[in-house]
């Protein structure tokens, strides 16, 4: 009976290994999700201080470089599976010997060594896999592409694109405790910051900020059984802010009021929460309760903010 149990456990391990290697070969892995239940993307930080074309080319080149690493591993993905079958063949040699009445386990030992090697190789190949690039990566490129014709000649975009993750410990803006002594963390992820001197002499600053809230895991005592139970961390929600500042070129524009661009008005997915037009600057903050805002929403918001500017007569 114990022998049967051991054989069963070994059988399950070998079967699991087979499917692990098969999925490695077919590149079929379960998508990794974060605590928000969303797909994980490649964590990348892009520092921007260049002309739009150079930035866009660089971003494309970077994607290709990542894909090159992945494709270099792809052509070997069937090798661990082949090694597994070599192991099976070795076990079969022992099987044939046993069939002929000779007891032998040495080939099976070799097979186990090969299966371990196959597993290690499959792990390494899987490690060379990359997550997909976040839609924000492509979206930022679209924003740069759209704004590039409005840029002052030879001027550069400045800022950063931070796609390393919204819930990193380094992005905890503050923490608060509730009456039950549970800690809630407030994250502030300024994932996009962009500054550009425009063709019309204005200076545009855009910041896209994702604010998230997460309750940390905690231990509580059950009122009925008296046992201590650990509750897992819980994602409590997210919202997006956009901050736009336009330093207006007084020679070209004057700032006017616009009924369609004032606090409380919805601009696409955003709702304007603060608006200031003092000192020759337009400062506007808007927020969105949606889980994600696309680049069209940001560009649309910038276009709407420009409705506060009226071109002076020549």
């Amino acid at each position: 009976m114990p022998l049967l149990c051991i054989a069963g456990v070994i059988g399950v391990i070998i079967l699991s290994l087979f499917f692990y290697l098969l999925n490695t070969a077919r590149k079929k892995t379960a998508p990794v999700t974060n605590i928000m239940g969303k797909k994980e993307f490649t964590p990348v930080y892009v520092s921007i201080a260049d002309k739009p074309d150079s930035i866009m080319l660089g971003m494309d080149r970077f994607v290709k470089e990542v894909q090159k690493t992945e494709s270099a591993g792809d052509k070997w993905r069937w090798i661990p599976m082949l090694i597994f079958f070599v192991g099976v063949a070795l076990v079969a040699v022992d099987g044939v010997l046993i069939l002929f009445g000779y007891f032998s386990f040495i080939f099976t030992m070799g097979a186990f060594a090969l299966w371990i090697a196959a597993f290690v190789m499959a792990r390494s190949l899987r490690k060379s896999d990359s997550f997909d690039f976040s839609p924000r990566y492509k979206g930022t490129k679209e924003i740069l592409h759209t704004l590039r014709d409005d840029l002052k000649p030879n001027a550069t975009f400045l800022g950063h694109l931070d796609l390393t993750g919204a819930l990193l410990p380094t992005k905890v803006a503050r923490e608060a405790k509730d009456t039950q002594d549970r800690t809630t963390q407030y994250f502030r992820d300024e994932w996009l910051a962009l500054k550009a001197k425009l063709y019309d002499g204005n200076v545009l600053r855009v910041s896209a900020i994702q604010k998230s809230k997460k309750r940390k895991s905690y231990t509580k005592r059950s009122r009925i059984s008296g046992k201590y139970k650990t509750k897992p961390e819980k994602f409590k929600g997210t919202e997006h802010d956009i901050k736009v500042r336009i330093v207006v070129n007084p020679e070209v524009y004057k700032i006017v009021t616009n009924k369609e661009f004032r606090p409380g008005v919805n601009i696409g997915k955003y709702t304007i929460s603060q608006l200031s037009t003092e000192n020759g600057m337009v400062n506007v903050v808007a927020s969105s309760p949606f889980d994600e805002v696309e680049q069209e929403q940001i560009l649309n918001f910038l276009k709407s903010a420009y409705s506060l500017l009226q071109r002076k007569a020549a």
Partner: peptide
């Protein structure tokens, strides 16, 4: 050994 290293995930575009 033939698989190239993963590129650094911090890139900088600087004029």
């Amino acid at each position: 050994a033939s698989i190239p290293a993963k590129p650094e995930m911090k890139v900088s575009f600087q004029d």
